[in-house]
């Protein structure tokens, strides 16, 4: 029941501002704006489901410097349940991670009835929301603080792509810059988040505890056994999108774990990260490159990545879900040309 909410959907008239915009001059409630900004800084997205005139409402939001705080605002004359469904699908956030706030009991009841997974709040309750557990993530990563901007950048990317005639032209135009660096202690929360949330682009599905990650980190010289990949393009910063764990043993370099955020699917980033790590190992004079794979039933993409990138697998006889991959000289794929590795 007390699931953390990822998105709060606001009504406008008499909720965000005092008064009804189509009938009278309205004034934005400063204490509500504070709540919106506070939730935003915690990585909780704000949206709008309101009845009224879209253009007028948006221009009033703009006048008050509030427009950019809201994602995919729905201002129309449809039932609000429809608006919330649309928000859910556009942001790809499930209904049980959405909350709705309105001053009108009828609207609140209707949402509770039509969309029982959506948590509803009365506008009078607005200023208390930041104290509720539903809006209080335990830890706030750098990525969470930027979450709204990440979504906004992603929407710009989608629009931009439509203007390009070829996929490659579009990818090149994005000017992606990938940085692969040893993990720092500050990154552990985000690394943990990636391990827990990533199922498809995950080579083993293993989830470590914070202490286990710390242990591995402290064993490695200067954190050189855990790497993170940070991505940015002309639309903005993606944050840490990948984590790799590796170990070295004389001439052998082994990639034990690789997970990449599903947010960057479709751009060849997983290949760029894998190949960059392998090239680095080869430059450092490792003669034999291995990579571990455990079939989780969900991570066929990663098996495909290895096999399509020049790795050959050898099944483990005692455990058929485990495959040890070897990089084959002269067969190794290249980093996609649209990714600049820094």
């Amino acid at each position: 029941m007390n699931r953390l909410r990822k998105c709060l959907v606001w009504d406008l008239d008499n909720t965000l501002w005092d008064g009804v915009l189509l009938e009278e001059p309205v004034s934005v409630k400063p204490e509500v704006v504070d709540v919106i900004k506070e939730l935003d800084s915690r990585g909780i997205l704000n949206s709008i489901a309101s009845r009224g005139d879209e253009r007028l409402s948006l221009s009033n939001l703009e006048k008050n410097n509030l427009k950019e705080l809201f994602l995919v605002p729905q201002i129309n004359w449809q039932p609000k349940s429809q608006s919330i469904l649309k928000i859910s699908s556009e942001l790809n956030i499930s209904l049980d991670a959405i909350a709705f706030i309105d001053d009108d009991e009828f609207e609140l009841e209707q949402i509770s009835y039509m969309l029982p997974d959506v948590l509803t709040f009365h506008a009078e309750d607005a200023k208390n929301l930041p104290t509720y557990p539903d809006f209080s993530p335990l830890e706030i990563t750098a990525e969470a603080k930027e979450r709204r901007k990440l979504y906004q950048a992603e929407m710009q990317r989608k629009t931009a792509e439509e203007n390009f005639k070829s996929r490659k032209e579009f990818l090149i135009s994005c000017r992606m810059k990938l940085t692969i660096r040893p993990m720092k202690e500050d990154d552990i929360t985000r690394v943990l988040e990636l391990m827990t949330r990533t199922h498809q682009l995950n080579t083993t599905g293993i989830i470590l505890t914070k202490d286990e990650i710390k242990n591995i980190y402290q064993q490695g010289a200067d954190g050189k056994n855990i790497y993170v990949a940070d991505l940015e393009d002309r639309f903005g910063w993606y944050g840490i999108v990948g984590v790799a764990m590796c170990e070295a043993d004389k001439v052998l370099w082994r990639l034990n774990y690789l997970a990449i955020s599903c947010r960057v699917m479709g751009r060849g980033i997983e290949k760029a990260i894998l190949i960059t790590l392998v090239e680095k190992a080869i430059q450092n004079d490792f003669k034999s490159i291995e990579a571990e794979f455990i079939d989780t039933g969900k991570n066929k993409m990663m098996r495909g990545l290895y096999q399509m990138s020049g790795f050959v697998g050898e099944k483990n006889e005692s455990n058929s879900d485990r495959i040890k991959f070897y990089a084959v000289k002269n067969k190794l794929a290249r980093v996609p040309e649209w990714v600049q590795v820094l």
Partner: peptide
């Protein structure tokens, strides 16, 4: 987009498919 790949074009190098 009106540029379909040629039959022998590498779909990965063209950014048309990746692992996903």
């Amino acid at each position: 987009s009106d540029s379909l790949p040629g039959l022998d074009d590498d779909l990965f190098d063209a950014g048309i498919v990746d692992s996903a």
